[in-house]
Design a protein around this nucleic acid. Sequence first.
RNA 1: GGCCCCGUCGUCUAGCGGUCAGGAUCCAUGGUUUUCAUCCAUGUUACAGGAGUUCGAUUCUCCUCGGGGUCACCA
Length: 465
Amino acid sequence: MIVTRFAPSPTGYLHIGGLRTALFSYLWARKNGGKFLLRIEDTDKARNSQEAAAAILKAFEWLGLEHDGEITYQSQRDDIYAIYIKQLLDEKKAYKCYMSKEELAELRETQMANKERTKYNGKYRDFEGEMPDDAECVIRIKAPLSGDIIVRDGVKGDITFKAEDILDDFVIARGDGSPTYNFVVAIDDHLMGVTEVIRGDDHLSNTPKQIVVYEALGFEVPKFYHVPMIHNSEGKKLSKRDGATDVMAYKEMGYTPEALLNFLVRLGWSHGDQEIFSMDEMRELFNPKDINKSASIYNTEKLDWLNSHYIKNSPNNALAKLLEQYGLVLTSHDKKEILLDALKERAKTLKEMATLVNEIILAPLSYDEKAVEKSFKADAIEILNAFKEKVISSDELHLPSDYHHLMQEVVNEMAIGFGKIGQPLRVALLGKMSGPGLDSVMAIIGKDETILRISNAIAANTASV
RNA sequence: GGCCCCGUCGUCUAGCGGUCAGGAUCCAUGGUUUUCAUCCAUGUUACAGGAGUUCGAUUCUCCUCGGGGUCACCA
């Protein structure tokens, strides 16, 4: 069975890059009928917070990425790690190192001065002497001093590291006994049964160290897929300074989960020329072997396009429900269908759509100056009055087509083009020159409101004519 | 600096020795529309550079250049 995991460190909110690797892991597990596990890497008490962990979970919930089983919290597993530390110590695969931080720093300085690679010198690797029981020490693992470490990566291919280039006896337990990252990752992934690790390629250079741990412990090494970074427009690793990288900010801005996920799945991964992927299609088609080898630059143009695509293609009742998150309650509006049909093709985001709805429902508070100047000429008043009279004397006005007929009549009777009535009427109803079809707008606001807005507009703007 | 990864239109990408180098987005133009948007059509723009292998390289190899990542008792 394929088991994948997402293992964030709760130092802040869930960001775009993390979400993408989480999505990839989720999809690959689902595609194979496997499991997608969650592990919170909260061993650094000073930097982690519960709020951050909760924020990550909340983002998962919004996006509908459900994980399997219980969440693993590393902070609760010290007992487990201690067992393996002891095991390695007993098997002489790890040892106590009594070098002080000062001595270590000094060692580094000397190495740097000599332009050598900075690394631990193995001073206590074969130390047999006695030290007081309370002597401060860290635990280091005996890493291979020579030979190759080969990372078999599903994205990049086989990568060979020379042990002498990159390894030293790295610390697996700190002075206070707490285990370090590269050590616990290997243990947790093994204990959780993780078979495939999909993570950012900033972890690539950690992987040889983790392989050392796997091998020391006799664990099977999982399959790795190192996903290239997402870069900002400067070509650097995406960071919190690059604007909206908090996943939940996308909700606030009015993006739908489908659009965001579709956007992310296509960032670094592709399936031929296909651009639009439903969740079902993603789960069906995703395969980490098709992940691109090179980094991509973060750019939201396509996200906007996808978002408007999903809005356009959403059923109205689903849209109405989504819109509630932006303070718009439409369930009781009797012209809900007309309203949503008129606007869903015009909005790039749900937030924008909520604004557009309000611009129709609420009478204009002011009239755009340029619009008035351009289309509110003397003849326009005459045309508007003629149209208003027709509205007043009509009984059955419900559908957009009812209003359209009235407009048509005015156009015919006065022998004018549609633009002659359209523009001033639009300004009267909406206060500006752009917007949805006027017949729809009038059907939505109804007969009385239509009459009122025309009258108000004429009253308000006659003076300036 | 050491080690590692990467390099096709501005951006996301297809390509897996022979293609007019394809799609999407963006942008521009035209059409549709009472306006704007949508929609439709058309168009501009790319294989980082140099050697080599080959009848033939975007594709394989090497070098150069460029970009990125990583080098902790952080994760």
